[in-house]
Amino acid sequence: MSKPLEIMNLHKRFGGLVAVKDVSFKLQPGEVVGLLGPNGSGKTTVLNMISGALPCDGGTVRIGGTDITMMKPHKVAKHGVARTFQLVRPLPTLSVAENVQLSLAFGKKRHWGREARALAEEKLAFVGLEGRGDERVGNLTYIDQKRMEMARALASEPDLLLLDEWLAGLNPSELRIGIDLVQNLQGQGMTVLLVEHIMEAVRALCSRCIVMSAGEKIAEGPSAEVLQEPAVIKAYLGDDHA
């Protein structure tokens, strides 16, 4: 069973710039929720604070009731949080399976040797890369690199998966593959926080959305309703469209 996520009054400042200001929201176990907003609105900064990649300047982050606010990324991973990045970050000197096996050393449970290889192959098969563990990362197409990154995140056996524009840069057929994969996770009860600009994917995957603008939360609710709110339209398109 996945765990709930709760963030309360999250705050982050870079010098004189307030990147995130008093942002609060909750995710229930098994929800797939969109975190939306124009570029520079603070979405990735929120993911970075949840995952431990950035320290918070204020507020709290809880996963399953446990305060993970000031933990380092490897400690956060032990509490069941995994993420992908806007740009795929493979280790090119390692094989596809070895890239995935690295996560097995930092998840909720540690796996080594033959067990780790078997689990890596299991995750690769789940994302559509069955039998390709011995290939070099450089041989993979862009969508297959995205799949490998997903397998690597899933290898840590997370309760919460943070997807930071994981579907960006895909062509229409690849996008359908990506949406189907996230829907499979949804069917397994995975809790997912999805940063995304592709509205087709948001509508297909997210029953609920949280929208940010200039570091603040400006809307939250059912996706179909939130995407029609004047404040959201204004944030994306400007005053003339609100």
Rank of each mutant, 00 (worst) to 15 (best):
V127T: 08
E135T: 00
A116D: 02
Y142A: 03
A120T: 11
Y142Q: 07
L124H: 05
F106Y: 15
A105Y: 14
L167R: 09
L129R: 01
K146H: 07
R136E: 09
E174R: 12
L119W: 05
L170S: 01
G107A: 09
A105Q: 15
E115G: 09
A118Q: 14
G131R: 07
I143R: 01
R152N: 12
H111A: 05
L140Q: 02
D134Y: 08
S103P: 08
G131P: 05
K108T: 15
L124F: 01
V137A: 03
D159P: 10
A105G: 13
H111P: 00
N139F: 00
W166T: 13
L124W: 05
D159N: 15
E149M: 02
Q145P: 04
W166H: 10
G113F: 04
T141N: 13
D159G: 13
L102N: 11
E165A: 05
P158E: 00
E174W: 05
V137S: 05
E165Y: 09
M150A: 07
P158R: 04
L119K: 14
W112E: 14
L154D: 02
W112F: 14
A116M: 11
A105V: 12
P158G: 10
E157F: 09
E115W: 00
V127E: 06
L124T: 04
L124E: 07
S103Q: 06
E165C: 02
E135M: 03
D159H: 07
D159Y: 11
E121G: 08
G131H: 09
L154K: 00
G107R: 03
S156C: 10
R114K: 15
G107L: 06
A118G: 03
G107V: 09
S103M: 00
L167P: 02
Y142C: 12
H111C: 01
R147D: 12
A168F: 01
A120Q: 00
E174C: 06
V137E: 05
E135G: 10
L170V: 07
F126E: 03
L170D: 02
F126G: 07
D134A: 14
L162S: 00
D144M: 00
M150P: 13
E165F: 08
A118W: 11
R136P: 02
E149I: 00
F126D: 07
I143V: 15
T141K: 08
L140H: 01
A118P: 02
M150D: 11
P172A: 01
A120W: 02
L160I: 04
S173K: 14
P158T: 02
L162E: 03
L163G: 06
L160F: 06
D134R: 14
E149Y: 02
G107H: 08
R152W: 02
G169S: 10
K108F: 03
R132C: 01
E135Q: 13
L119N: 04
R110E: 15
R152C: 09
G131V: 07
M148I: 08
N139S: 15
E165T: 12
A153P: 04
D134K: 15
R114G: 12
F106D: 05
E122F: 07
